[in-house]
Simulated assay, not measured.
Amino acid sequence: MSAKIGILLANLGTPDEPTPSAVYRYLTQFLTDPRVIDLPRWKWIPLLKTMILPKRAKRVAKNYQSIWTAEGSPLLQITKQQQRALQTYFDNENLNMVVEIAMTYGNPSMESAVKKLIDSDVEKIIVLPLYPQYSSTTTASVFDAFAHALKTTRKILPFEFIHSYHTHPNYISALAQSIKARFKSDEFLQFSYHGIPERYEHLGDYYREHCKQTTLAVVDYLGLTENQWGMSFQSRFGKETWLQPYTDETLAQYPQQGILKLAVICPGFAADCLETLEEIAEENRDIFLQAGGQSYHYIPALNAEDAHIQMMAELIKTKLSLPKQTA
């Protein structure tokens, strides 16, 4: 393959530092995206800046401080590991690829990543949003950010946009193998996905269906029975109804139902981040144990595992009509 192809790995984003000011900047960008919060701007923006951000930035900064590493944000650190691993994979295959990363919010920005690829003289760009299940709040936001980045140049290259991969065989296999390596036969397996307002579903967002399809595919692969697993949604925000059942409320009820040993996985996350490392691994663990649970552990995201990197490569190669390799 002589043509140089640019690969763009896109994820949500992270603040530059675990400080209230940095978190304030990050959350401002995130929560003013109409894909995320679709309330009328005249109503939402004043409320956000005067009531929500001043308090939320301080609280979220403390949460980030609890997971921050010497290398910085876990999300950014892991995404860089994925970038390096995928670049090595393509180099070993003698494929003329350049892999860059971009965050929808924060740094490295979508604009900077697109500029790097164009400056590298790539002839085509393939965008891979690191969201297995489509949602207008995530995948569509990546598309918006990518399209906006192209507004700054007259040199719009041919591009491919990978929409979703919620039932891709290599993704399901990687998830299932990761679970098998960490899941005990006497545990209950909880699939927890990031929530979205229920209203968005009524407006056409089919995210819940993608989550169901992922869950059922993994359950079928593992051969689990109905009384060995559950599915729920985490991280609701505001007063309106979000997709249910809610993870925190569900976990609080489990001990009363005789479920005392729990393993939780978040298949919607390609890289561990604040939400998985703090909310799921810590906050929800406390909720479950305080309600009478005996044991609880979080099964990490696929991160930079070999099977995950190969799955990304296979997704990308389908856009090139190149020979596929089996897992």
Rank of each mutant, 00 (worst) to 15 (best):
I5V: 15
G6S: 04
L8Y: 01
G13V: 02
T14W: 02
T14F: 07
D16A: 14
P18T: 04
R25T: 05
F30P: 00
F30Q: 01
R41G: 07
P46F: 10
L47I: 13
L48S: 07
T50G: 13
T50Y: 14
I52F: 08
I52K: 04
L53M: 04
K55T: 10
K55V: 11
K55C: 06
N63D: 14
I67M: 07
W68T: 07
A70C: 11
E71D: 14
E71N: 13
E71G: 05
G72R: 03
I78L: 08
T79Q: 10
A85H: 02
L86D: 01
Q87Y: 06
D91S: 12
D91H: 02
N92L: 07
N96Y: 09
V98L: 06
V98S: 03
I101F: 14
A102R: 06
P108K: 14
A113H: 03
V114H: 01
V114G: 00
K116W: 12
I118K: 12
D119F: 11
D121H: 12
E123M: 06
K124I: 13
V127T: 00
L128H: 01
P129S: 04
P132E: 07
P132V: 09
Q133E: 08
S136V: 04
S136I: 03
T137G: 01
T139D: 03
T139H: 01
S141G: 09
A145D: 01
F146D: 00
H148K: 15
A149Y: 01
K155D: 14
I156T: 07
F159A: 12
F161P: 00
F161D: 00
F161T: 02
H163I: 05
S173Y: 14
I179H: 00
A181E: 15
F183S: 05
F188K: 02
L189Y: 00
L189I: 03
Q190M: 15
F191G: 00
Y193A: 01
G195S: 15
R199C: 12
H202Q: 15
G204C: 08
G204W: 08
Y207F: 14
Y207W: 09
R208T: 09
E209R: 09
H210M: 12
K212Y: 14
Q213I: 06
L216R: 03
G223R: 09
G223T: 04
E226M: 11
Q228A: 12
G230D: 03
F233A: 01
S235Q: 10
S235F: 13
F237S: 02
G238Q: 02
T241D: 12
Q253R: 15
Y254N: 08
Y254F: 15
Y254E: 03
Y254R: 06
Y254S: 08
Q256S: 13
Q257C: 04
V264N: 01
I265P: 00
C266R: 02
P267S: 06
P267W: 05
F269S: 00
A271L: 05
C273E: 03
E275N: 07
E278G: 09
E279T: 05
N284Y: 10
D286H: 13
F288M: 05
L289F: 05
G292Y: 10
G293L: 04
Q294G: 07
S295I: 09
S295H: 05
Y296M: 11
H297P: 05
Y298K: 03
N303G: 11
D306A: 15
M311C: 10
I316L: 00
T318I: 09
T318K: 06
K319Y: 08
K319R: 14
L322K: 04
K324Y: 10
K324E: 14
